[in-house]
Design a protein around this nucleic acid. Structure first.
Lengths: 152, 152
DNA sequence: TAATTACTCTATTAAGTCGATAGACTTAAT
DNA sequence: ATTAAGTCTATCGACTTAATAGAGTAATTA
């Protein structure tokens, strides 16, 4: 399950990706635009900043900016910071491996076999999708539909 | 995240798939073999029975049996019963759809776009994998390694 | 039909996580 | 000096998870 935390984070990051290069954006601004509880968003952005995904500027005229280019921030990076490992089970996690207490032989564990497949599939998607990719795809979706209106 | 509940369930089901056609298996037997807390396993198997995935027989000589052939029980079925929808977010769930309260336009939500991809990928894996498949693959893995011992 | 075996059901509990809020503090620009 | 903005710590209630306990019910078998 994607937590609200990560969902809010991704929405905020997409906003910041759109504004990239145009100076800092206010927390309140993002919160209002995306319907995110303001105080909660503060915590989230702070955490992302502490992991280098965001930069901030204090005081008047301050706000948040992406820590690197939109094409260099991947969904996987964000989810790992906020929700922990992507793997459905610790025994198939690359970033936080832990064996199952009750498992007698990991090599022949059927559950592990399937979960490994799931982990690999989701990690492939999430690590291949950058903020830049998302912006492009959203714009395509937004323009795609209305375009049909004109194509009589 | 896969819960312990579902992990235990799948392990139990794999045992039952191996014993399929050879009469009922005791809860205690499964619990001992797989290192699962016995009382907890009772609840799990009962829930699976109430959803038709398992059958049971009471009294002496009783125990649990699969409700249908191992090839007809898929991992996705089990996880949906015990852990709920597979989708990482309700707005991309087929079995339990719900829109996000704060989302202004679902059609152009970037988060949803990515999560839909993840949902489809995991559902494809989990709904394509049956207990029978798992047994085959585990046996392959188990025989594969030792076989190398003989191949000097 | 009594004894035994084994599943069934309802409660309970401790621990942990999640979403959200509050308020005091720090920094920077004007 | 004032104001605008991010930073930090604490706290809260609601919910979920993993696990345990114990009384109840059904079906064999002797």
């Amino acid at each position: 399950m994607l937590t609200h935390k990560s969902k809010y984070a991704l929405k905020a990051l997409i906003v910041l990706a759109r504004e990239f290069g145009r100076g800092p954006v206010l927390i309140s601004n993002i919160a209002a635009r995306e319907g995110i509880p303001r105080k909660f968003l503060e915590l989230i952005l702070l955490e992302l900043k502490n992991h280098g995904i965001l930069q901030s500027k204090k005081g008047k005229g301050g706000g948040y900016t992406l820590g690197r280019a939109p094409a260099a921030i991947h969904v996987g990076d964000v989810l790992r910071v906020l929700d922990g490992p992507l793997a459905p089970t610790p025994c198939v996690s690359r970033t936080a491996y832990m064996r199952c207490a009750e498992c007698l032989d990991e090599r022949t564990c059927g559950v592990r076999l399937v979960m490994k497949q799931v982990r690999d599939a989701t990690a492939t998607i999430l690590d291949a999708t950058s903020l830049a990719d998302i912006v492009v795809r959203v714009d395509q979706a937004a323009h795609g539909k209305p375009a049909l209106t004109y194509s009589i």
